[in-house]
Write a protein that binds this DNA or RNA. Structure first.
Lengths: 219, 219
DNA sequence: AATATATTGTGAAATAATGCACATGATTTG
DNA sequence: CAAATCATGTGCATTATTTCACAATATATT
């Protein structure tokens, strides 16, 4: 068991968050940042920033702050984003298409190297990015042939499980699942779910709360 | 202060999660579900399910379980998704386009009623869904004219703050932000961030951990 | 060179969230 | 109709996460 296995999950999410302003500061040639400033920019508590970073080492200098370039480099090393990752995507509907074409991913080190669909009608379509949609059953051979690290599922919910099975049978260990379905995988497989409707539903709940509070206050 | 203000944030997220299998069960005419079954389908602990629901009332029957239809109705009422919500979106790049065309949202009660862009070149383009891209500076008048509940930001990061300002100046209280930038808003405004790269970075971190553990084990 | 000021790293307290385990009440069985 | 079974609701112990508050250390000032 590594020491790092007891690092809070939220800490990892925030590390990625911290890297965003740091990237901007690097571009702007600002050499030093304090936990207070970084915290403010990310909307968290300064002690939180320091503690998050301290899990992995002493990156700051007391009385001074953190060296921006160095801190960004360390965070990338910690997250594993100091190298490029190859992605494939299953389900070439609107969302899938937009992700493949989105160059934010490329900028951050993620390269789409294959696109799949379960629907034979979609197979063969050439995408603006240069990839051609492949039949999903060829995932295993493609993964071996091109070398793929991560799979993204953007199929309709009812096909998500099938897509997931194709991915983990091809020995992929990381899946980003955009469908509303929970996929079942062997536990060696890491699945991160992003259900966009869930996000909206959260937003709506908190909005309703806000309105209720207001009414109560107003009376 | 309402009683509901001390409900754990994770509980709200899980409520949305629970509704997914429930919808399927309603369609399949399965009348009753146990916390154990629901928990299994959502990958959580059964006691968690019961506790989450118990914050809002006694929806189950001891020795029996939960009536599926009723439970779904209650969850929708709690979340505020028992009515339709009007959305507008700012930033009609690939991602924006795909969200507007995505009918999952419509199915779940969210209607896109306006699409905006800051770039004059994009203005006037008619979308497959029927909407025409409007200039972002018209957000306030459109919000008043068509009635809009929520705003979605899909601009590049550098324009996200401007988009957010247009939205909250138009008196919108809920924003779903897909850009990598943290937007600053008055605190009456609720912002939900969905940074897709953050999700990938999390996935990558946990994958690296997995590999490290394996190597350690293998040695 | 002493003092003031800034800012990190961290132990300990406070807060939040989870999960166990069992009393409670419904249903089924013999 | 008593006993067995099932599954909820919940008090409480446990675990996880956040925040405070301060010692440690660097820099600026007088």
């Amino acid at each position: 068991m590594t020491k790092e296995s007891k690092i809070p999950r939220p800490t990892i999410e925030r590390l990625a968050l911290y890297s965003r302003p740091l990237e901007i500061f690097v571009k702007s040639n600002i050499p030093i940042i304090s936990s207070e400033k970084l915290a403010e920019l990310c909307g968290v508590n300064p002690a939180q920033v320091r503690k998050d970073l301290a899990y992995f080492g002493e990156f700051g200098v007391r009385g001074v702050g953190y060296e921006v370039r160095e801190l960004l480099r360390e965070i990338k090393r910690i997250l594993g984003t100091d190298r490029r990752w190859s992605l494939c995507i299953v389900g070439m509907g609107n969302l899938g298409m937009s992700l493949v074409e989105n160059d934010n991913f490329k900028q951050r080190g993620y390269d789409f190297v294959a696109a799949f669909d379960l629907d034979p009608k979609k197979v063969g379509i050439e995408l603006p990015c240069g990839l051609t949609i492949q039949p999903a059953h060829t995932i295993p051979e493609q993964v071996r042939a091109v070398g793929i690290d991560l799979g993204i599922i953007t199929t309709p919910s009812r096909e998500a499980q099938r897509a997931a099975e194709l991915l983990f049978r091809a020995n992929l260990k990381g899946i980003l699942n955009f469908s509303a379905a929970q996929v079942r995988t062997p536990e060696c497989c890491i699945v991160e779910n992003v259900d966009l409707s869930v996000k909206l539903e959260n937003l709506v709940y908190h909005l309703e709360m806000l309105y209720k509070e207001k009414n109560v206050t107003a009376q």
